[in-house]
């Protein structure tokens, strides 16, 4: 990697450059999220046909599948930032990991809830302790564990290190969730969409699904950047307070 590219990357790793950039990106991605969701849901509810097996309940897919994807993507992203934060002590990476966690937990909860509400009319049960559902529930606990550990330890650097470590160890759960439907016999259906085999659904269903997935991405970018901004200000406040105390001691 060349030195110039490194400097460029470091530029956005600093909070003072990040903050004004986020100010411009947040409304952009929030607007994009709303537009994509409106178009996606229109296609999903008014254009896509009724499923001949499941009836209308399959329309939960347009929310369930993107939420489940996000729950895993966000976790991987969180773990990546946790590694950067642990190894290179980049403050912005820690702020990003911390800011991703609540949104990741929210998408995990939505994936579980919509899965239960889809399971009832389709399988006849809200919940079953099978590999896919159990590992996704574990993902929710990993998010909550990360957040809980972070806020439980008073010293922020120690809190960050402990929580980051937990997040990194928890990464092994993500491939387990993803491949659980292949590795074990489960009630959960296999993926309806794969890069190698294409989609097992009509093109209207697929467009609605992908539009909703992009909407979730745009939403995540907007809300996580906003949260990161709040965290930057909160930490700046603590630093300012500390510097003022040491200044007063000297005086």
């Amino acid at each position: 990697m060349s030195a110039t590219r490194r400097i460029h990357w470091m530029k956005y790793a600093s909070a003072s450059n990040f903050y004004p950039l986020a100010n411009r990106l947040v409304p952009l991605f929030m607007g994009l999220a709303i537009a994509l969701a409106v178009i996606g849901l229109y296609i999903g509810f008014f254009v896509a046909p009724v499923d001949y097996q499941q009836g209308n309940s399959y329309r939960i897919m347009f929310l369930h599948v993107p939420a489940a994807w996000m729950s895993m993507f966000i976790y991987l992203l969180l773990a990546m930032y946790a590694i950067i934060s642990l190894v290179w002590r980049v403050k912005m990476a820690d702020i990003m990991a911390y800011s991703l966690a609540p949104t990741g937990a929210m998408f995990t909860f939505i994936a579980l809830l919509t899965g239960a509400l889809w399971g009832r009319p389709t399988w006849g049960t809200y919940w079953i302790w099978d590999a896919r559902l159990t590992s996704e529930l574990l993902l929710l606990f990993l998010y909550l564990g990360y957040m809980g550990l972070y806020s439980a330890i008073p010293d922020r650097q120690r809190a960050s290190r402990a929580a980051s470590f937990l997040a990194i160890v928890g990464v092994v759960n993500v491939p387990i969730i993803y491949f659980s439907v292949v590795w074990w016999n489960t009630l959960h259906q296999g993926s309806s969409f794969s890069v190698s085999e294409g989609a097992s659904m009509t093109s209207d269903m697929l467009s609605a699904l992908l539009l909703m997935a992009f909407a979730c991405w745009a939403y995540t970018i907007a809300v996580v950047l906003r949260r990161a901004q709040a965290v930057i200000l909160e930490r700046k406040k603590v630093a300012l307070w500390a510097s003022q105390i040491s200044k007063n001691k000297e005086a």
């Binding site: 009836g55 209308n56 309940s57 929310l63 509400l117 009319p121």
Partner: peptide, 22 residues
């Protein structure tokens, strides 16, 4: 929704609520 209204609107309604709250 052909008898699936509770499941569908329960899903979308909760998600919308959570997003607004967040």
């Amino acid at each position: 929704m052909g008898g699936h209204g509770f499941y569908i609107w329960g899903s979308y309604g909760t998600a919308l609520f959570l997003v607004i709250v967040e």
